[in-house]
Design a protein around this nucleic acid. Structure first.
Lengths: 355, 355
DNA sequence: TTGTATGCGTTATCAT
DNA sequence: ATGATAACGCATACAA
């Protein structure tokens, strides 16, 4: 088909040197405006495209950012939260002229570390998310000279984009409390730093509100795993002093809880109230619509790309920072309003047994 | 940190020329076995990594495959079906030494076509999926000299990996019929070639079974859109001669149908039977477990990568082919067994009104 | 303001 | 079996 056109081809057509063409194309100021414009016009007309490999070889810049989105279970692509973040990240990266490369071990026969993969592809920087942050290879990556941005995890020497796990749980608990609940159960995912933040915020907020939290009301489950949340739900529903509201680790896990609740002939929110976490599409397709916390995946992904590229393009003035991205409460229909006034324990128990 | 080590560095250490090192590293046969082994050992010890940019520049091969996974709505990442395919594709590509680059328009300030993006990044080939296949830019891509594999769509000059949309619908309809249903409704997505295949298979199978399909029982909705499926469900439920089983465009859309069914006080499968399509995680987390068709995303993605890389590595002997990937029926709990014997129309009507 | 020359790291051709 | 050399396309230091 159409032959590949190079700078040399353009230089011939324009009767200038290839250096002049290169400068004109890159907008250097030391080229006459008219010649520059002419060269650019010819380049456009000839369908010129820069050769990214040649450019990378020369400049040691690839305009490529690595993305480490790996999970114990599978690739991070399975989680709607992470795929949404990735998508936003990709959009912003492309807007600023960067492509994305998935980083992994084992590329072909070469077994390489994450860092080696980045070096092999000459990635200008790397975004790390949804990965075991204590993996030595991740540490190696973070400690390297490569610009790095982490999502939902803080290392002391990198920029981090954080979904606001403290305020989210605080808001949810306050919302639940305002609707008259004082017996609130919390099902959490695997013990990551995110989980620890949410759990701490849960305890702290309850304490501020004067709500006691029995150990029985805090259950461990796993993220994105309806089964373990179903088990936890079952245990909670069997408590003699049953909670009136259950908080789930994420919207998808709630499906398991919902099954268990319905299996016991209870209705949401009539007999038991619930909230999710994430605000994925599914949560608003369900009936009743799930009350949940929407994480701002669009901003998280965009900021991750943006801060990383800032660091790449301005290595000296860039400083590590932690950016906390607020989310928003989605008020669905799954938290019952129990009483107009703050209930005493006795009233509360009455409200439960009225089912 | 550790400096980048090049072939030249190795050649110095080994007291051979850089040409010899290159050949040894690439396993050429014209190097003494002992020297070659020695060179490789030194390279390993020094932490040598090939410079992909230099190699690409020289060989005109990037070991990079482009991936066009774009949807009207968003990126294809939102659909669990496509993200699963992509993940499998990525795994196979990496196993064979290829990285993946997302192809899009608008990279930086350069507005480029899909083909131009591929050329810019020197992609060795491209996989096309979940895209408007009638987009002129996609056509341009397919008609180019770039090796191409399409997923779920056939062009006459490319290799295609196809989920078996004919047999899947046939199997579903047969399964439903075997359980005593003769009034089967079909809700379909936007009119793509996939949709047309499924619809044709639906009509054909019904005809083979001697089932008549009133126009009222075939409804248009949109993929991945619970709302439109809810609307279609509502219309179907209001029919005087109501279907006993509804087939949904996909598992996620079924959520909308389910809401509508429950809103009307009907139960699944007691009052109305349903099947989904895709077999995503959600479908088996629901209660009752959804009867659906599981598309073999793992094979689809793997084959797409595999065939594309075959074509890249062996351009002469590679031929276009269409590969149909079978799926499997997931027997959930959402199709009621109506009668032991094939029902006459009258019995059938009685069964319906008994609710 | 424009041109010349060089080298980025690699592979391939052709000698030796 | 090994080495010298050139070339891939581009950007830049320096000369003009």
């Amino acid at each position: 088909m159409s032959e590949i056109v190079t700078i040399k081809d353009i230089s011939k057509k324009c009767n200038v040197s290839s250096a002049t063409v290169s400068k004109a194309l890159n907008g250097h100021s030391d080229i006459g405006e008219e010649t520059a414009e002419y060269i650019r016009a010819v380049a456009r007309e000839m369908g010129y495209l820069p050769n990214s490999a040649a450019r990378a070889l020369k400049t040691n810049r690839s305009n490529n950012i690595g993305v480490l989105f790996i999970d114990k279970t599978q690739s991070g692509l399975a989680h709607e939260y992470f795929s949404a973040v990735l998508n936003s990240l990709k959009v912003e990266a492309e807007r600023r002229g960067f492509d994305i490369t998935f980083i992994s071990r084992n590329i072909g026969n070469f077994k390489m570390s994450y860092l080696e993969h980045c070096r092999y592809r000459k990635c200008d920087g790397v975004v790390i998310a949804c990965v075991s942050f204590d993996d030595p290879e991740v540490i190696e990556l973070v400690k390297s000279d490569l610009p790095t941005v982490t999502i939902d995890h803080v290392f002391d020497n990198t920029t981090a984009i954080l979904s606001d796990n403290i305020n989210s749980v605080r808001s949810l608990v306050n919302y639940i409390y305002d609707r008259g609940h004082t017996k609130i159960a919390f099902i959490h995912g695997e013990k990551t730093s995110v989980t620890q933040k949410r759990l701490a915020s849960f305890y702290k907020t309850c304490e501020e509100l004067g709500i006691s939290v029995p150990d029985k009301c805090v259950k461990a489950a796993a993220y994105h795993d309806p089964k373990s949340s179903a088990v936890a739900t079952n245990e909670l529903l069997r408590l003699s002093d049953r909670p009136t509201c259950i908080m789930y680790p994420d919207d998808f896990s709630f499906i398991g809880g919902r099954n268990e609740i319905e299996r016991q002939g209870l209705s949401i929110p009539g007999n038991i109230s619930v909230v999710g976490y994430d605000g994925i599409n599914l949560s608003q397709a369900l009936r009743p619509r799930l009350t949940t916390w929407k994480q701002d995946t669009e901003t998280i992904g965009r900021e991750a790309a943006s801060k990383l590229i800032d660091a790449i393009e301005n290595p000296k003035i860039s400083i590590q920072q932690q950016i906390t991205v607020p989310g928003e409460l989605i008020e669905g229909e799954t938290v019952n309003r129990l009483l107009a006034v703050k209930p005493s324990p006795k009233q509360n128990r009455a409200a439960i047994s009225q089912r």
